[in-house]
Write a protein that binds this DNA or RNA. Structure first.
Lengths: 208, 208
DNA sequence: ACCTGAACACCGTTCAAGT
DNA sequence: ACCTGAACACCGTTCAAGT
């Protein structure tokens, strides 16, 4: 691994360990044994280093989604699995999740980060589109429906992270909300009336 | 206005003008003609001052929602108007919106902020519940449905703020996405197939 | 009770200098 | 080409001192 990659790895670990505030250039440099401004030889600024972490994470998420899209699961379950990827990521790496979907200043930088984000989201949209083609999801334009679904997932994750959702609903898991959404959207409306989703095992959206 | 209120007002104005980074205690103090650490006589920390701004804003939003709930509009339009309140707020005061729904460190403080947030969200839930009682929205537990709808709105606002939604969909307005959601959720499914919402006039969700 | 001014321990960033 | 160390202009926060 070259210095640039080691800096990105160190920054990611600091994000996981102490949140964004812990990612000081002094701490990143120290973590890999260089001075506090060696990073400036590889990244134009602190934000540029953070953007590099986000770019790498977007590619990881996109790869996971590609695997799911190729799987033999039913459309409903494929969508739930895809959402599970980001739920897990948000729980395992909250600060890095915020970097992906919650950092206007970073997102506005454009460049490779925006490309990586667009590619990842297009895979997610394809998973939704597959479900529409199979007649399971309504025929709204697939980009719109995918954004709606993803926005809901992101909103639930975000509300959960801020603690507001938990206190209001007592939901143990974000996934329950997403299961309800998928059922509400599904052309099979038989489960809607109850609105009750079964309990899910930790970290995994339950099969339908 | 006492010093404490003037500090909150000054902080809110700085948030609007320059985002969270612009809210330094030196700038806040200077804005009302006191020293850079006079705020410590009224708030225990910078975060405490920011929490006071958020508390005040939650109360403003709650008041607007109470008015909408009392209105004679149809349930669908009441919900769209309620969502319009937060969309407008997010566009007029992006940094303050982030303080309300996007700041785990601030939200985790609890106290009056959490109370104000809970009260506001309970009014929103009541608006959704009214629609369910009228048979317009599905009968999922009202708290769950309200959180789902709000999470979607928040997710769309957030995606819009981060620039990702706009580039992927070209939607001029967040509201279009919410109109689609409300139609998808409504028991009247006649509009679902097209998924096309009419254009809306700026800053106002169109009547159905 | 409320405020001030100096001070402390941090930041990100710049820059001249080294190899 | 890559890195270092000093320096600069900021921060939030603390503290002794003022009225």
């Amino acid at each position: 691994m070259n210095t640039s990659e080691r800096l990105v790895t160190a920054a990611a670990e600091l994000l996981d360990a102490g949140g964004e505030a812990a990612v000081t250039l002094r701490a990143v440099g120290s973590a890999i044994g260089v001075s506090h401004n060696a990073p400036y030889k590889h990244f134009v600024s602190r934000d540029d280093l953070l953007a590099a972490v986000a770019t790498s994470d977007f590619r990881t998420v996109a790869d996971a989604w590609k695997q799911i899209r190729k799987s033999v699961l039913k459309p409903n379950q494929r969508l739930l699995d895809a959402l599970d990827v980001v739920i897990r990521f948000s729980q395992d790496h909250p600060a890095r999740y915020r970097l992906l979907f919650n950092s206007p200043a970073i997102a506005a930088r454009g460049g490779p980060l925006t490309s990586a984000a667009d590619e990842a989201l297009s895979v997610f949209a394809a998973i939704v589109e597959d479900g529409q083609a199979a007649g399971v999801f309504p025929a709204a334009p697939s980009d719109h429906l995918a954004v709606l679904i993803f926005a809901t997932a992101h909103g639930l994750i975000d509300a959960d992270a801020s603690g507001r959702l938990r206190t209001r609903t007592g939901w143990a898991e974000i996934g329950t909300g997403l299961q309800i959404l998928v059922r509400l959207l599904s052309n099979d409306r038989s489960h809607v009336a109850s609105g009750q989703a079964r309990r899910r095992r930790p970290g995994r959206l339950e099969r339908d």
